[in-house]
Design a protein around this nucleic acid. Structure first.
Length: 286
DNA sequence: ATGTCAGATTACATCTGA
């Protein structure tokens, strides 16, 4: 069974990339973030296209910002929109949806960005992560948390740690909050698979960052042991970041064994993970 | 050289957020 997560940065703008990607990669379960559409608009835009490909879906959207979804062609049950007990800013935002797909509780999450470490949004981010930990801790043992966590777990997950000092995504409290989430028993399956590689999932649109491979790894697939033990392949689909009209994030793709339909895709990942070499550059100024 | 993009708006240009 193939599971993927992708921050599409507006599903409306990404339709010309999303549909061919579904046909090429043929994921069984897809977690989407930053759909930026109401649930009704999502259904109008993609309902028929997804049904024609055999996908059911669960969405939790809002009109302009945020928005998450889970697509599944291996069953989709007990969908829950939102994050129980989670904080708002000040009202709840559409940043989480969960459902059970082929026996696995799947969470698609879009963790608040944090903006700057001295902002209210940063504290909102930490509180949101604590609520996510509590939800996962009280849920089923077969669980996957997939999405844009807006945290680089370690210095190896940013192109130049010095360029990020004092910025959100790398501060110790954020990394501690992520560690607390993982402490309920979740493994970072891409880093497990590629312990020493340079692996990024996000590259700023500005300043040719993708071209120079100056990115961050902030999109994660976190798996509890019963699921992590089934991982056959875990990789970043950098191809989806290339070409015309890409998202600024690339999908993360994970293949699990015991695929119901026998279509587990390549066991050997494509050459998306390049040899580690350190770049150094300034961050684009905001 | 802000090598960007998406969504918004006292809308056809400039703002916010990422």
């Amino acid at each position: 069974m193939r599971v993927a997560t992708w921050n599409v940065n507006s599903v409306k703008q990404r339709v010309p990339r999303l549909l061919p990607w579904l046909d090429e990669r043929r994921p069984d379960v897809v977690c989407l973030q930053e759909t930026k559409l109401s649930d009704d608009a999502f259904a109008t835009l993609l309902g028929d296209e997804l049904a024609g490909r055999g996908y059911q879906y669960a969405v939790h959207g809002q009109a302009q910002w945020n928005g998450v979804a889970i697509l599944s062609r291996v069953g989709l049950e007990d969908a829950v929109p939102g994050l129980d007990g989670g904080p708002g800013f000040p009202d709840p935002e559409a940043r989480a949806v969960s459902a059970t797909c082929a026996g696995i509780r799947v969470h698609s999450v879009y963790v608040p960005n944090g903006r700057t470490p001295d902002s209210d949004h940063y504290h909102y981010k930490l509180a949101w992560l604590a609520a996510l930990r509590d939800v996962v801790a009280t849920g089923p043992e077969e669980v996957l948390v997939c999405g844009d966590v807006n945290i680089a777990p370690a210095d190896a997950d940013v192109f130049d740690p010095d360029a990020y000092i004092g910025q959100t995504h790398v501060t110790p409290p954020e990394r501690a909050a992520l560690a607390e989430l993982q402490a309920v028993g979740l493994r970072d399956v891409v880093r497990d698979r590629w312990p020493h590689e340079r692996v990024f999932t996000y590259w700023d649109y500005r300043a040719g960052m993708f071209h120079k491979d100056l990115g961050m790894r902030i999109d994660l697939v976190l798996a509890a042991n019963p699921v992590a033990e089934r991982v056959q392949a875990a990789w970043v689909d950098r191809h989806a970041r290339k070409g015309t009209g890409p998202s600024d994030h690339a999908p993360v793709i994970v293949d699990l064994d015991d695929a119901p339909d026998g279509d587990i895709g390549p066991v050997v990942p494509p050459p998306s993970a390049r040899p580690a070499k350190r770049g150094s550059a300034r961050l684009p100024q905001t």
